[in-house]
Design a protein around this nucleic acid. Structure first.
Lengths: 222, 222
DNA sequence: TAATTAATACCCATTATTGGGTATTCGATA
DNA sequence: TATCGAATACCCAATAATGGGTATTAATTA
């Protein structure tokens, strides 16, 4: 075992021989399953779990972790917010996204944020363990599937991303609010909302509302 | 231990003390996790797993199982097809759906099909074990969340189903065709399409296009 | 500091959607 | 045969959405 994982061995002993993992997923059954999976390894131990972002944040404030593994889609708050918060609270923490089926946009967002590993739930469980080994070793891990998602995304012009305000409006559209209602909700003029809609349709290459809704579904803005 | 699970004890011994479970999910990581979860119980053992419907069907043809646990959404074929096939090949098999977030329509479809248990991935893992105990005991198990999904579905009058023509039009709407285009495609007047749209909105209780698209997604008309 | 971007708001006009009706024809069912 | 559901088609009118612009302000970035 001498020298495994490079220079992390000594650190390891100090940490009672197991890296402490915080596991976050809003599906308890899956959470329990992944926990067993990780705990059956030699090097990693899930010391805490959470089924929502809020309680995960509480844990990060009060407990020490080496690794944070989190789902992306979790109700109001996403894994994105959680990771940002975690990096502030514990700068040394390594982060791994364990997600379902993500769009190029989301993958890019998270990589830009500096996640250390990215694994899909449709990957093999060896991927998960490989990711853990890589990130504790200071490297980055992307599963093959994620790599291909990124390749998918390169052909589209970079200017296709919606601004925060535009995303906000898309979300309200999907919630079945009309232009007039959205204007009231956001305390802005109806004309402004119309302008936003026009820009959104152009950016997302949608020819009408229906196409936009489908875009929203595909890009997890629902 | 005498008499546990009613009269299934003797049967149990014959089966080498563990119920044989086939576990099907197209997400390997989740599959591995659930497998560990079930195998850590006293009574159940996952003897085979599959990550797609086709190979699950192969297994059902060649191996004996007491229980089939399957996801619903799995690429081309759904858990629905798998369950129908399993009931034919092994009439005594008990079936449990382990699914993500299902609409009343899907839940109803599966219950009509005669699934023995229904658990959501967002349920606790105790739900899964409770479901296993119930179904091996000849009873039916629905998690609380499923029960409430069903209750959601009952308030709508039974006459809410769309006619074939209406469904056809919904599908064209979702394909981003306008009223005018739909009229051309179906060789009918634009007024007729408008009438259909009105009736569709009324029947589906949709206040606008967006709501209708969401209805279509939920009811698999996409 | 200059240039760019995001958010705001308006002008023009056209097309699409929605909501309230009524009515006819055809085929199936009671 | 009488009734009903489904598909067809129209009336009228109001509201919503789309497509083409331009423009101002604040903030950020080069």
């Amino acid at each position: 075992m001498v020298g495994f994982l490079g220079n992390t061995y000594l650190k390891h002993i100090k940490r009672m021989n197991k890296y402490k993992v915080l596991l976050v997923d809003d599906h308890p059954i899956l959470l329990e399953g992944s926990k067993n999976l990780i705990n059956s390894s030699e090097l990693y131990k899930v010391t805490f779990t959470a089924t929502n972002v809020q309680s995960a944040m509480e844990l990060i404030k009060s407990e020490d972790f080496d690794i944070l593994i989190t789902d992306y889609e979790m109700g109001d708050l996403t894994g994105s917010e959680l990771i940002q918060m975690a990096k502030v609270a514990q700068p040394e923490i390594k982060t791994i996204i364990l997600s379902m089926h993500d769009s190029p946009a989301i993958v890019k967002e998270l990589l830009k944020l500096g996640v250390n590993g990215y694994v899909l739930k449709s990957d093999s469980h060896e991927s998960m363990l490989a990711a853990l080994d890589k990130v504790t070793n200071g490297k980055r891990y992307l599963s093959d599937n994620i790599a291909s998602i990124l390749i998918e995304g390169i052909d589209q012009p970079p200017s296709s991303a919606l601004t925060p305000r535009e995303e906000e409006i898309v979300k309200l559209i999907v919630k079945e609010f009309s232009t007039k209602q959205i204007a009231e909700i956001l305390f802005i003029s109806q004309r402004t909302v119309e302008t936003h809609r026009k820009n959104i349709l152009k950016k997302t290459k949608s020819s009408n509302l229906v196409a936009l809704i489908k875009y929203a579904y595909d890009h997890k803005l629902v």
